[in-house]
Simulated assay, not measured.
Amino acid sequence: MPQAGDAAPGFSLPDQDGNTLTLSQFAGKNVVLYFYPKDDTPGCTVEACNFRDEHSALEAAGAVVLGVSADSTARHRKFATKFDLPFPLLADTEHTLCEAYGAWGEKSLYGRKFLGIIRSTFLIGPDGKVKQVWPKVKVDGHVAEVLAALGAKAGASSAPVKKASTKKAAAKKAPAGKVARPAAPAVKKAPVAKKTGARSARTKQASAVKKPVSRSAVKKTGRKPR
Rank of each mutant, 00 (worst) to 15 (best):
Met1Asn: 00
Asp6Gly: 00
Pro9Gly: 01
Gly10Tyr: 00
Asp15Leu: 05
Asp17Gly: 13
Thr20Gln: 15
Thr22Ser: 06
Leu23Phe: 01
Ser24Thr: 14
Ser24Glu: 15
Ala27Ser: 07
Gly28His: 11
Lys29Asn: 15
Asn30Gly: 09
Asn30Cys: 13
Asn30Thr: 15
Leu33Ser: 05
Tyr34Ser: 03
Tyr34His: 11
Asp40Trp: 10
Asp40Gln: 09
Thr41Val: 08
Pro42Ala: 09
Thr45Tyr: 04
Val46Lys: 15
Ala60Glu: 10
Ala61Phe: 10
Val64Asp: 07
Val65Gly: 02
Gly67Ser: 08
Val68Asp: 10
Arg75Asn: 10
Ala80Ser: 14
Phe83His: 15
Asp84Gln: 06
Leu85Asn: 04
Leu85Thr: 05
Leu89Asp: 07
Thr93Cys: 11
Cys98Thr: 06
Gly105Cys: 05
Gly111Asn: 10
Ile118Ser: 09
Ser120His: 01
Phe122Leu: 02
Leu123Gln: 11
Val130Met: 14
Val130Ile: 15
Lys131Pro: 04
Gln132Met: 03
Val133Thr: 12
Lys136Asp: 05
Val137Glu: 10
His142Phe: 05
Ala148Tyr: 11
Ala149Phe: 05
Lys153Tyr: 08
Ala156Asn: 15
Ser158Ala: 15
Ala159Ser: 05
Pro160Lys: 00
Ala164Cys: 00
Ala169Phe: 01
Ala170Met: 08
Ala171Pro: 08
Lys172Trp: 00
Pro175Gln: 04
Ala184Asp: 07
Pro191Asp: 10
Ala193Arg: 15
Ala193Thr: 12
Gly197His: 14
Ser200Thr: 02
Lys204Cys: 10
Gln205Leu: 12
Gln205Trp: 03
Gln205Arg: 09
Val209Asn: 13
Lys211Pro: 06
Ser214Cys: 08
Arg215Glu: 11
Ser216Lys: 13
Ala217Gly: 01
Val218Phe: 07
Gly222Ile: 09
Pro225Trp: 14
